[in-house]
Write a protein that binds this DNA or RNA. Structure first.
Length: 806
DNA sequence: TCCAAGAGACTTTTT
DNA sequence: GTCTCTTGGA
C-alpha cells in the first residue's frame, strides 16, 4: 500500500525534505535562486494540512506579490487534488478524466484553499483591518471605520499637495509635495509621530514638514482613508495596544510562513513578531508546541532597501526566534543550495559576482545541470543599436530552435524608460511582446475615475474621490462652484459630501451650476440603492452607464477614447474575475485588491510573447533565454549608487537576480552612449559588474582592461562615427575646446584634456585620464583613481587640476 | 466653464 | 519622448 503521507516529500532533495517536514518552532530557509523555494513552501503547507492535520484557517502565508500568492494557491490546489485522487479513486491524477480532475479541484478549493490567508503583507493586513480597525485607539484621537478607503501613492501625493499649497500656503516649487510625502512616509515607518517630528526637527523646513505630516494624518482620517504605510502601521499599534485583538489573531494563526523574507522591513517584522509570540520577547518565547514561524529568503536577492526593506532582519532570524544556538544550527536553519534552473556557466558568473559583496550569509549555488553556452557580451554604439542587436540575437535563436518560443525569452533592464527603444525594434520586426510594469492598469485615468465612484459609494467621507468625479464626466460644475462648496464644508467642519448632498445648501451656494451638483447627488443616491443587490462587475457597468461616462467616450472619436472604453471593459472583466476567485465578493474587497494590485499581477503569461520588464519585477521568475541590457556605469549600477558602497551592493544583488533568471542562454549588452529622455547623448562606460564576471565565462566584446574601462580605440571609433552622422549633436573636436571656456567656472574649466594626462582631484586624489567623451558643452572625461572604478566627470565642474601632460 | 496649446517635469526600482 | 499641469482665449 502506497504511503499517502510521503506524497509531499517525494522527489525532494534532503534539504528540501527537512524544510517541508518542519512542523513546529522557528525555521529559516536560506534558499538560493532557483533552488526550489516555492516548491518547499507549497509542499510544506500541503504537508501541514494533510500530515499534521492543521486547519487551513490557521495558516497565514505572506508572499511578496499578489501574483505569487495566486500561483501558490493554484499549486497547492493541484497538489492537494492529486493526493485526493489517490485517496478517492486510488489512481494517479494523470489517469483521471478532465471532468473528474475539475471536480476534485473544486472540492479542494472550497474546502481548503478558500480558508487559507495567502497574500501580500498589505493585502492581508488590510483584510485584518476590515475586521478590527474600529477597535484602534489613535494617540491623537483620530478615527477610522471599516469602510475605509485605501489611497495609493498618487492619491496620497494629491492629498499632500493640497495640504502644502492650500492649507500651508507654500510654494510647491520650493516645498515639493513629493519630497514632503517621502519625508512623512519615512517618519511613519520609523514610528515617529508628527508631534515628535516637530520637536526634533530644526529649521523652518523641518517644522513645516512636521506640520504637513500632522495635517496629512488628520486629512486621511477625515477622508476615512489609509495609505500603504497605514495598512501595516495601524495593525502594529492595534496589536500592541489591544490584548484581546492580539490574542485573537495570535490564536488564529498558528502557522505563519513568509516568502522573500529578505525584503521585509521593520514594520512587517514587528507584525510577524506580534502575531507569532503574542507580544512576548521572541527569544524567550517557548510555546511552540502547536505553532511555527517559517521564513524563506535569500539575502543575496534583497533589492528593496529603498522601500525600507532590511535583509539584516533575515540574517538575525535565528537570534530573534531561536534557541541561542550558533548561526549554523540546523535546528533553526536549512540551506537550499542546489540550483535546478541554470547552466553551470550562468551560475558561476552569478556566484563570482555576488562574492564581491561584503555583507552576506555565505552560500554557494551548486549546479545540477550541464555547463551550457558561454555568456554573450555585446558592445553597441548607442541604445538604438543595442535594441537592434538584442532583437537580432533573439530572432536568430527563435529561427534556429524549433522548441523555443518567444514566450521563453525575456529582456530585462534597470529602468522602465529603457523599454521604449526595444519596443520600437520589436515592432519593426513584428515580434510579439509584452511589457510588464510601468503604468499600472489601475493608475489609468478612466479606471481611477470609475474606482473613485465606487469608493465614494462605500465611503462618503472620501472627499478626494468625490472631488475627482464631481465633474467627471462634465456636468458644468466649475472651479468656482467647487471652491464655494469646499469652503462651506471647511467652515461647518463637515465632510464635503454632506454639503453636496444638502439640496438647499447647494441651491444657495451653487449659483448657476447648482443643477449639475444636484444631478450628481441624485446619481450617487441612486447608485447607493443598488449597492447591496448588485455584484461588483454589474455595479461598475451601472456606474459607467448612469454617470454618462461611457456616452461621453462614445461621442469622443479619438483613438484615446477607444482605448479607454477597452480599459473600462477590462475593469469589468477584472471585477468578474475577482468575483470568481473570492468567497464573499463585495465592492470593498474588489477596491482593496485594485489598490494593492501591481501591473505584473494580472498579466496573461500564456501567450507566446517576449517579456520586457525591469530587473525588480523579474524577481521570482525564470526564462530559458534572458537578455540583460544597458549594462553601463550610471545606468546599472544607477548613478545614485555609484558612490555609496551599501547602495552599490544592492545594485549588485539586483544584477545577481538578473543573471540567475536565465536557464539556458544569457546575453549581456551595453551601449557606448545613450540618449537621456530625448535630449542629449551621454557617453557611458561598461558596467563594473561586467568586470566582475570572469572572462572565461564570456564571449563576444569583452573589454580588454579589467572590464570596467573601455578599450582605448573605442574613443576613436566613436569620433569617426559621430563625424559620419553629420548630426549637430556633437560639434567637431577642435571647436569643442574653444567652446568649453565659456560658462563653467570649476578649477578645471577652460583647460584642455587628453588621454594620459595626470590630474589631481580634491576628493579622490591623483588620477589618470583614460578617455574623453563628446565635445563642447557635452565634453566629459573618464579618470581612473587609485583603487576605484573609473569615474566620469565634467571637467568644467569637477574639482580637478591638471598635473602633467601624459 | 471649457478647451487647446505650451511649458515643465520626469527616470531607479513598487506594495 | 511622454505625461501632467498651467494658462489664456472663446
Amino acid at each position: 500500500m502506497h504511503n499517502l503521507n510521503t506524497t509531499f516529500l517525494d522527489g525532494l532533495n534532503p534539504a528540501q525534505k527537512s524544510a517541508v517536514n518542519h512542523h513546529t518552532g522557528p525555521l529559516l530557509v536560506v534558499a538560493g535562486a532557483g533552488s526550489g523555494k516555492t516548491r518547499a513552501l507549497t509542499h510544506r503547507i500541503a504537508h501541514l494540512i494533510s500530515e499534521h492535520g492543521v486547519d487551513p484557517g490557521e495558516i497565514l502565508a505572506v508572499t511578496f506579490t499578489n501574483k505569487a500568492a495566486k500561483e501558490m494557491k493554484e499549486r497547492l490546489e493541484i497538489l492537494l487534488a492529486q493526493r485526493l485522487s489517490k485517496i478517492q479513486f486510488g489512481q494517479p491524477w494523470a489517469t483521471l478524466q478532465l471532468a473528474q480532475q475539475r471536480q476534485l479541484r473544486n472540492r479542494i478549493y472550497n474546502e481548503t484553499i478558500k480558508e487559507l490567508w495567502i497574500g501580500t503583507f498589505h493585502a492581508l493586513f488590510a483584510r485584518l483591518l476590515r475586521f478590527d480597525i474600529n477597535k484602534f485607539n489613535d494617540v491623537n484621537g483620530l478615527k477610522w471605520t471599516r469602510q475605509f478607503s485605501i489611497y495609493d501613492e498618487s492619491d496620497a501625493q494629491t492629498l499632500v499637495k493640497e495640504i502644502v499649497t492650500k492649507e500651508l500656503q507654500l510654494d510647491p516649487k520650493r516645498y515639493e509635495p513629493k519630497k514632503i510625502r517621502w519625508a512623512i512616509s519615512s517618519a511613519k515607518n520609523k514610528g515617529i509621530l508628527p508631534e515628535e517630528l516637530e520637536e526634533e526637527s530644526e529649521g523652518r523646513r523641518g517644522k513645516l514638514t512636521a506640520q504637513a505630516y500632522r495635517l496629512y494624518r488628520q486629512s486621511l482620517a477625515a477622508n476615512n482613508a489609509l495609505d500603504f504605510d497605514d495598512l501595516l502601521l495601524i495593525p502594529v499599534h492595534l496589536l500592541t495596544q489591544n490584548k484581546q485583538v492580539r490574542n485573537y489573531w495570535h490564536e488564529r494563526f498558528k502557522h505563519i510562513l513568509v516568502d522573500e523574507y529578505q525584503d521585509t522591513n521593520r514594520t512587517q517584522y514587528e507584525l510577524i513578531k506580534l502575531l507569532v509570540t503574542n507580544g512576548e520577547d521572541p527569544s524567550l518565547f517557548n510555546k511552540w508546541f502547536n505553532r511555527s514561524i517559517f521564513v524563506v529568503g535569500d539575502a543575496d536577492q534583497s533589492i528593496y532597501s529603498f522601500r525600507a526593506a532590511d535583509f539584516r532582519i533575515l540574517m538575525g532570524f535565528q537570534k530573534d526566534f531561536g534557541d541561542q544556538e550558533s548561526d549554523d544550527s540546523t535546528k533553526t536553519m536549512v540551506k537550499l543550495e542546489e540550483n535546478y534552473r541554470s547552466t553551470s556557466t550562468i551560475l558561476k558568473a552569478a556566484n563570482f559576482l555576488i562574492t564581491k559583496n561584503k555583507e552576506r550569509i555565505d552560500k554557494v549555488l551548486r549546479a545540477t545541470r550541464g555547463e551550457g553556452d558561454l555568456i554573450k557580451l555585446t558592445k553597441c554604439d548607442d541604445e538604438i543599436a543595442e535594441a537592434e542587436s538584442v532583437v537580432h540575437q533573439l530572432r536568430l535563436i527563435e529561427a534556429a530552435n524549433r522548441d523555443l518560443k518567444w514566450g521563453d525569452m525575456a529582456i530585462l533592464y534597470r529602468t522602465n524608460a529603457q523599454s521604449r527603444v526595444i519596443e520600437e525594434s520589436l515592432v519593426r520586426w513584428r515580434i510579439p511582446y509584452i511589457v510588464v510594469g510601468g503604468l499600472r492598469f489601475y493608475d489609468r485615468r478612466e479606471i481611477k475615475d470609475v474606482l473613485a465612484y465606487l469608493r465614494l459609494l462605500i465611503n462618503p467621507a472620501d472627499t478626494v474621490s468625490l472631488l475627482r468625479v464631481l465633474n467627471v464626466p462634465r456636468r458644468g460644475i466649475g472651479k468656482t462652484t467647487v471652491q464655494r462648496l469646499t469652503d462651506a464644508s471647511d467652515q461647518l467642519g463637515i465632510p464635503l459630501w454632506d454639503v453636496v448632498s444638502d439640496k438647499e445648501a447647494v441651491l444657495s451656494l451653487g449659483g448657476r451650476s447648482a443643477k449639475g451638483v444636484i444631478q450628481f447627488c441624485e446619481l450617487i443616491h441612486y447608485l447607493k440603492t443598488q449597492l447591496e443587490k448588485t455584484s461588483p462587475a454589474d455595479l461598475i457597468q451601472l456606474v459607467i452607464e448612469k454617470s454618462g461616462y461611457i456616452s461621453e467616450l462614445i461621442n469622443d472619436a479619438t483613438d484615446h477614447a477607444e482605448e479607454r472604453r477597452k480599459n473600462l471593459q477590462e475593469l469589468i472583466n477584472a471585477a468578474a474575475q475577482y468575483q470568481d476567485e473570492n468567497d464573499n465578493p463585495d465592492i470593498q474587497g474588489f477596491l482593496a485588491s485594485a489598490a494593492l494590485a501591481s501591473d505584473s499581477d494580472n498579466k496573461d503569461t500564456a501567450a507566446d510573447r517576449i517579456t520586457l520588464m525591469t530587473l525588480h519585477s523579474s524577481k521570482g521568475l525564470e526564462f530559458p533565454i534572458v537578455s540583460l541590457v544597458g549594462m553601463e556605469q550610471g545606468l546599472f549600477p544607477s548613478y545614485r549608487s555609484i558612490d555609496d558602497p551599501a547602495a552599490l551592493e544592492e545594485e549588485r544583488r539586483l544584477c545577481y537576480v538578473g543573471l540567475t533568471r536565465a536557464k539556458e542562454k544569457l546575453f549581456l549588452s551595453h551601449a557606448c552612449e545613450r540618449r537621456i529622455w530625448g535630449g542629449s547623448r551621454e557617453p557611458a562606460l561598461p558596467s563594473i559588474f561586467l568586470s566582475e564576471i570572469p572572462d572565461e565565462l564570456l564571449q563576444g566584446d569583452i573589454p580588454r582592461t579589467g572590464g570596467a574601462s573601455l578599450r582605448r580605440d573605442n574613443h576613436l571609433e566613436r569620433l569617426v562615427r559621430v563625424d559620419r552622422e553629420k548630426t549637430n549633436a556633437f560639434p567637431h573636436d577642435t571647436e569643442a575646446k574653444n567652446s568649453i571656456r565659456r560658462r563653467f567656472s570649476g578649477p578645471g574649466a577652460g583647460k584642455s584634456w587628453s588621454v594620459g594626462d595626470k590630474v589631481m582631484h580634491a576628493k579622490f586624489g591623483e588620477g589618470e585620464i583614460t578617455h574623453t567623451f563628446g565635445s563642447g558643452e557635452k565634453m566629459s572625461i573618464a579618470i581612473k583613481f587609485k583603487g576605484m572604478s573609473p569615474k566620469i566627470l565634467d571637467p568644467r565642474l569637477a574639482p580637478i587640476q591638471p598635473l602633467e601632460k601624459g
